[in-house]
Amino acid sequence: MHNSKRIHRTSTLLVLRALLLSTPLLILGCGKKDDEASGERVEFLNVSYDPTREFYREFNRGFARHWEEKTGQRLNIDMSHGGSGRQARSVIDGIQADVVTLALAVDVDALAERGLLPRDWQSRLPDNSAPYQSTLAFLVRKGNPHNIRDWDDLIRPGVRVITPNPKTSGVARWNYLAAWGWALRHFDGDEAQVLDYMTKLFRNVPVLDTGARGSSTTFMDRRIGDVLINWENELLLALADRGDDFEIVVPSVSILAEPTVAWVDRNIDRRGTRAAAEAYLQFLYSDFGQELAGKHFYRPSNPAFLEKFEHQYPDLELFTIDDIFGGWATATERHFSDGGVFDQIFQR
């Protein structure tokens, strides 16, 4: 008995060993087959932030056509969407993005820090690599039942404010900085009062989603909250679709947000897609790209197109991040690093 048991034990071990050895082979084999299935088309990946879904869906069709006419090369342009910070994290962890089109310059900077692209990336394209701009506004339920007019209304007791998490989302950082900027002006630079305002503001936030689109669905579909702070383009899109349920409230001041774009040198050089990646981003500045940006409620960086779409943007005073915070690097270090001002506010 003892002997046969030992024999059994070895054969079991053999089976297990064979399994362990064959598993990676199986997986790799299948991975390869998947790649081949796509044929002669060149795969191209744009890793973007949340509310650009509709814009890039249309833009990709246009660029693929343009590129095939020009070079004969057929592109399969795929998209990945999510909170800007999280998307940058995925690119750092190895997602093979040819280009990134993110909500914040600082998220692209994070890639530069890891050597994925040069540190001076922002000067490679016009307008600080921001082919379109946007700002923030409020969305409230029809009739504005809580009578929300400006930033100070957001801290009234009982008003529930929906904004994503500044740790993962680009627009959430813009939201935070816009609120801070308004408060700084409102309280004549008294930081203690600004901190108090920010604390009250985040106490009124019941849900922190990871990205802009998550917050939109929380507010619009799940019907949580009284006011949503989000991208102007995201709100105009929502209004175009469901104008009967909501209305936009424009605060007295807001921040000029510059979503930035860059090709990821390390990936495109390995994959041989540099020409397409550079052309793709330059195409954003073309008449086609600018027109499309305006159509999807972004503010085109080309003044001619900005003027053309002027009527659709609410009239409000805009400050830039450089005006108040001395640029992204300083703002990130002070407010959004671990243990930074946001963490302190949120834990209060």
Partner: peptide, 12 residues
């Protein structure tokens, strides 16, 4: 080989 953000990672 691409493991994560690709088919093999999903299988894993």
């Amino acid at each position: 080989i691409q493991i994560v953000f690709a088919f093999p990672g999903i299988v894993l």
